[in-house]
Amino acid sequence: MATSVKLDDNLKSRVQNLAEARNRSAHWIMREAIRDYVDREEKREALKQDALHTWESYQQNGLHLTMEEADDWLAKLEAGENVELSKCHV
């Protein structure tokens, strides 16, 4: 499937200069840039959806950890301790 993208002259020149510096085609540079962008944005959207789902769940059941509980758990992990996350509570 062929797709065209219209670039202004400045961006087109920048892509071409980068392609030459990297010994790649401008097509390769643009394809990689689009792939990286889509990968990043898909991850961002998944994180957003997960956060919304978590917020909705909290609104329904009130289960949570305090910031202090989460910080304590993270500090123990950072110190190399193999600890499980505390149970959520109301």
Rank of each mutant, 00 (worst) to 15 (best):
Q49I: 11
M1T: 11
R35A: 14
M1P: 03
A51I: 09
V90L: 13
D9E: 15
H64C: 09
E78D: 13
G80W: 06
D71K: 02
D39Y: 13
W73A: 04
A51V: 09
S13W: 10
R40G: 09
S86P: 14
S25Q: 07
D36P: 01
A46K: 10
E56A: 00
H27C: 06
D50S: 08
V5N: 01
E45V: 13
W73V: 02
H64G: 00
A19L: 03
T54D: 04
N82D: 15
K12H: 13
V83L: 00
D72G: 02
E56T: 03
S4V: 05
R35G: 07
E69W: 00
R44V: 08
K48T: 13
E56I: 03
S4W: 06
R44S: 08
A26F: 02
K43C: 02
L47A: 11
V90Q: 12
E78T: 12
A51K: 06
W73L: 05
K76V: 05
A46H: 10
H53L: 05
G80P: 07
V83C: 03
A19E: 01
E78H: 09
M67K: 06
N23G: 14
A79Q: 11
K76C: 01
A33T: 12
G62E: 15
L63E: 15
S57M: 04
I34N: 02
Q60P: 04
R22N: 11
T66A: 02
H27A: 11
G80K: 03
D71R: 01
C88V: 15
A19P: 00
V83S: 01
K43D: 11
V15P: 02
Q16G: 02
D8L: 12
L77K: 13
A2I: 07
D8M: 11
G62R: 15
L85P: 00
M67C: 03
D50Y: 10
I34W: 01
T66P: 02
A33V: 05
N82E: 15
D36I: 07
Q60E: 13
S25W: 05
Q49D: 12
E81R: 00
R22M: 11
Q16M: 06
E84T: 13
L18D: 04
G80C: 08
D71Y: 00
S57Y: 01
S25G: 09
K12E: 12
V38F: 12
N61C: 05
N82P: 02
E69H: 02
L18M: 06
W55L: 05
H89W: 08
R31F: 10
A79M: 08
D36C: 07
W28T: 13
W28G: 01
